[in-house]
Structure formats: structure tokens, C-alpha cells
Design a protein around this nucleic acid. Structure first.
Length: 222
DNA sequence: CCAGACGTTGTT
DNA sequence: GTCTGG
DNA sequence: CCAGACGTTGTT
DNA sequence: GTCTGG
């Protein structure tokens, strides 16, 4: 699954992101978060008729029809069943997004050892997500999102049996194109990442504590 | 028809 | 054990 | 995801 | 909103 990640996108990488994902609006410098946890605010790229840009969302989907902010946080959506779930269906069709990240943290099931999983070439990874907008009875407005998970690939399966859906190259464009409402244009993208696309290393238990939001979270251990 | 749920993971 | 908060 | 709390009554 | 159960 994906329950923690690093979103530390400094100026140079942001410039590259804007170009590669063909943003139509220039992005503001983003908050640097070495230890993003559920319910926190995260940045994601989305396309609408008005253009393609980076927005801020609460991590943990709040469906638009919710009466209140749910106590249970829907931080992940299973790719295998996503089309069957009313909670995700409309978002999947029209409100897809990509979460740029340096990588994500995964705790080895057997011993709770945390690992940092990142792109083999050290570029940013892009996790597939869907978003929704929620309007509270008091007039509050809360955009939120969830990260799609799939089966772990062989490399990942050493530590865990799930992983976020990662998109590369032109698949990113295809996923973001909101005018593609035909499931056949985006469902096939929801697959485990290619074996050679990711790499991982052990990190310290420092990352366990949400309050630890420093570069140290990314330091290799041993 | 209306009422009520709508989620994932890990563990057992 | 289970729920909440981050 | 992990960490940390988890309760009531009466008195101040 | 949309699906399921009765």
C-alpha cells in the first residue's frame, strides 16, 4: 500500500516537471515535505478544461456526497476493484491526477523495517490518484484525493504485497487527459511498475514518527 | 419502491 | 484491541 | 502508514 | 451520486 511518501520538489525539479507534464500554468514553489502522512495537504497535477496545473489536496478522499468529513480516511483505492466502487467511479472517469514524489515509504511486513522506494534513475515518481471536491454545510471547501494501489511487482514483493500505481513517460499524459472518459484509455495503465523502474533502500525508524519532517528521513541506514 | 452503505490494510 | 490524529 | 490515546466524577 | 439489500 502507500501510507507515507516524500514530496520535496525544489525549483529545478519543478521546472522540469512543468515542462515534462506540459503544465499550462506556472507552478508556485511547493512546500517541502519529507514525511507526508494521511490527512496532510499534498500537491498533485490535474487537467481541466481551464488547463493543466498543480493543486493542493487533502490526502484521504472525501466523496462529494459525504455529509461530513469521514472519520475513516480513504487514502488508497485498489486498482483491481476501483471500477466497482461507487466512491471512486466518477472520479476515475473525470478526476484523475498524478502525485509527484521523490519516492514512497514502505514498511516491511515481517519486521516493520521502513524502506524508501524511488525511481531507479532518481527522477521523480508519479503516483496515480483520483480527486474530488467536497463542500461542507458551513460553506467550507475541501479538495481531496486518494492514491491508487496495485499488486507489488517482484522487487517490491520482498517487503510488501501492495504498491502505488506509478506512471512513466506518455502514460502520464494519458492518465491526466480528462477528456478521455473512456475506461479503455486509462484502465490498462493501472499495473505494477516495471521491475527495473524502481530501487529501494532501508531508512531509519525516524520516519515512523509523523512529526519528523527532515532530510534525515531519506538517509540510507546501514 | 425506500433505506443505508459507500474503504484499505493487516491480522486472525 | 481499536480508534484518532498527523 | 505509525504513534498514541483509550474514562468518569467531582472539585478547582 | 450510485449501488445493494430487503
Amino acid at each position: 500500500m502507500c501510507g507515507r511518501f516524500a514530496q520535496v520538489i525544489k525549483y529545478d525539479r519543478l521546472q522540469k516537471l512543468e515542462k515534462e507534464l506540459r503544465l499550462t500554468q506556472k507552478a508556485q514553489q511547493l512546500e517541502l515535505n519529507f514525511n507526508v502522512a494521511p490527512t496532510q495537504t499534498v500537491s498533485a497535477v490535474l487537467s481541466q478544461d481551464a488547463g493543466r496545473y498543480i493543486g493542493a489536496f487533502r490526502w484521504g478522499l472525501i466523496p462529494s456526497w459525504s455529509k461530513e468529513i469521514p472519520s475513516y480516511s480513504m487514502i488508497n483505492a485498489r486498482a483491481e476493484t476501483i471500477t466497482e466502487k461507487p466512491t471512486f467511479r466518477s472520479g476515475l472517469q473525470r478526476q484523475r491526477c498524478l502525485l509527484p514524489a521523490n519516492g514512497f515509504y514502505e514498511w516491511r511486513k515481517s519486521d516493520k523495517q521502513p524502506f524508501f522506494v524511488h525511481a531507479a534513475n532518481d527522477d521523480l515518481i508519479y503516483m496515480a490518484g483520483i480527486y474530488d471536491a467536497w463542500y461542507g454545510p458551513d460553506g467550507s471547501y475541501v479538495p481531496s484525493l486518494t492514491i491508487i494501489t496495485t499488486a507489488a511487482n517482484t522487487a517490491m514483493s520482498q517487503i510488501h504485497d501492495r504498491m502505488p500505481v506509478l506512471l512513466f513517460d506518455e502514460n502520464r499524459q494519458a492518465w491526466l487527459e480528462h477528456k478521455n472518459t473512456d475506461a479503455s484509455s486509462f484502465l490498462p495503465l493501472l499495473q505494477p511498475a516495471a521491475e527495473d523502474s524502481i530501487a529501494m533502500y532501508k531508512v531509519g525508524k525516524l520516519v515512523n514518527k509523523v512529526g519528523n519532517n527532515t532530510e534525515e528521513c531519506l538517509l540510507p541506514e546501514e
